[in-house]
């Protein structure tokens, strides 16, 4: 699936929900389903700065694609991270760099992804793009 197809699928899923509770039950469920990271990857270097809860992001380069793994102390953040991974993981560096993440706005979760000190998931997107850029320059 392309990045935009993934985004459309997430948007469609969220359209089914009638209220905030159903929406959050879904996000929490996504949080629980995210495999997370082994302790060896929960290093200081992998911490995303600017989040109220600790968020770790690790990346590897496999068959020309960037594959992300992530974890968080907070379950809702973990659910949001899972969505970001569904959309951006396992794509080429160029696809990741070109990605316009409109699904965040469309499913009405902007407040949790906004660039505030407490909800720094925007810094996570930035870090994912930084990895993509690094792998792209390695590939060249």
């Amino acid at each position: 699936m392309t990045i935009n197809e993934q985004q459309e699928e997430l948007i469609e899923n969220f359209e089914l929900f009638d209220d905030w509770e159903e929406k959050y039950e879904y996000i929490i469920d996504l949080g629980k389903k995210l495999p997370g990271l082994a302790d060896e990857f929960k290093t200081e270097d992998n911490i995303i700065k600017g989040c109220q809860s600790l968020v770790w992001l690790n990346a590897k380069f496999e068959d020309g694609n960037v594959v992300f793994e992530a974890d968080s102390q907070a379950i809702i953040v973990k659910g949001l991270v899972n969505m970001l991974l569904q959309v951006l993981s396992d794509h080429t560096p160029q696809e990741i760099l070109d990605a316009d993440l409109y699904f965040i706005d469309r499913i009405g979760l902007t407040s949790h992804l906004a660039q505030t000190r407490s909800n720094g998931l925007a810094s996570m997107v930035k870090q994912m793009k930084t990895y993509a850029l690094a792998y792209q320059s390695l590939g060249k």
């Binding site: 905030w20 509770e21 959050y24 109220q52 809860s53 102390q73 907070a74 379950i75 809702i76 953040v77 949790h112 407490s118």
Partner: peptide, 21 residues
């Protein structure tokens, strides 16, 4: 077993403003 940030987000959905962190 619940992170303070999760508490804050779910309370916020109910119109309740507290501080977490």
């Amino acid at each position: 077993n619940i992170h303070p940030q999760d508490i804050g987000i779910i309370l916020d959905q109910q119109g309740i403003a507290i501080r977490t962190g």
